[in-house]
Amino acid sequence: MADRDLIFVGPTGYQSNRLGAVSERYSVFPPLIRGMLAPVLHDHPSGRVILVDGGFYHEYAVDHREICAALRDGREVIGLGSMGALRAVELRSHGMRGYGAVVELIGRYGLYDDEVMLLHGAEPPYRPVTVPLVEVRAALGHLLLAGLVDADDVAGVIAEIAGLWFADRSMPRILQAQQRRTPGRPQAVEALRNQLQGPALLKRIDLECLLAGSPPPAVRMLPCGAVVPDSPHGFEPA
């Protein structure tokens, strides 16, 4: 049997259709925190390291030096999703490889680290409590392409949500912001709710594409701040 890859994942994998079916190919670990990587690598001396989620609020975040040590030891380290996407962009010159739409958005548009942050349950299945701003951008991109909102509506909602502390970006606060921008269009609020419950969750889509061995979705960010697909396949893999 081929060596299993090591994947550190938490809320990005919540309700993933694929994560529960990869036990033969992956050893799954909780979100990575400082001091956790070296012991895991000692116990698992082969296999790629795939960093998706990591602790940062109640625990110390994984240090860059820990990842660089793994790279120097010859491990392939891939980052995507949340903490993995941030570290992949920060350490790309050191050999860490990024994967997915979120990495592309951080690297190309310089999104702040709090764009991927969220509060979530402390134990599996790590149920999300708040919504990352990058997911709001993608959901609003869907509404914009569907003609339910215009660019000014999008820019106004994003500005309001971006002004909140990441832990205050709850679903009710986001929907209230949308309601204020489109008071006569309840369908826009409902469409935003629906998108944030699954179809436009870029971090999860990146994870499922990687697990499936598929290319990640191609995306771009519009001047209004919405994230939209850069291919006719939408947010699905090409």
Rank of each mutant, 00 (worst) to 15 (best):
G47D: 13
L201M: 03
E115K: 05
A146L: 13
G74E: 07
R180E: 08
P124D: 08
Y126H: 05
D113V: 09
V149Y: 02
I161L: 02
R18N: 11
S170A: 06
R173T: 00
T12S: 11
A69C: 08
V22M: 11
S27K: 14
Y126M: 02
L145P: 10
A188Y: 04
D153C: 15
R169I: 03
I50Q: 04
E236H: 07
M221N: 07
M96L: 14
R204V: 01
L91G: 00
A122K: 15
E104D: 13
D5M: 02
L6Y: 11
G147Q: 08
Y126Q: 02
V157K: 06
H42L: 13
I205G: 01
V136D: 08
L105K: 07
Y26T: 09
G74V: 11
G13W: 07
A85D: 06
V52Y: 12
R108L: 04
T182Y: 07
P217Q: 03
L145T: 06
P124S: 11
P128D: 03
G20C: 12
R169V: 03
P232R: 15
D73S: 12
W165V: 00
M1N: 14
L91D: 00
G95W: 03
L80R: 07
P124V: 10
L118Q: 02
H142K: 15
R87N: 02
A138K: 15
K203D: 05
E190Y: 09
M117F: 04
V129T: 08
L41Q: 01
R173D: 05
A88G: 05
L86C: 04
M1H: 15
G121I: 12
R204C: 01
E76M: 14
D230C: 12
F56W: 11
Q195P: 01
S93A: 08
A88L: 04
D113H: 14
M1V: 13
A151W: 06
A155R: 15
Y14N: 02
I50M: 10
L164N: 00
A212Q: 11
A226I: 11
I67C: 05
Q197H: 14
E90L: 11
P39A: 10
Q176Y: 03
G81P: 07
D63Y: 10
R204I: 00
I78E: 10
L201I: 08
R108D: 04
D168R: 10
V136T: 08
G163W: 00
L144S: 07
G107A: 13
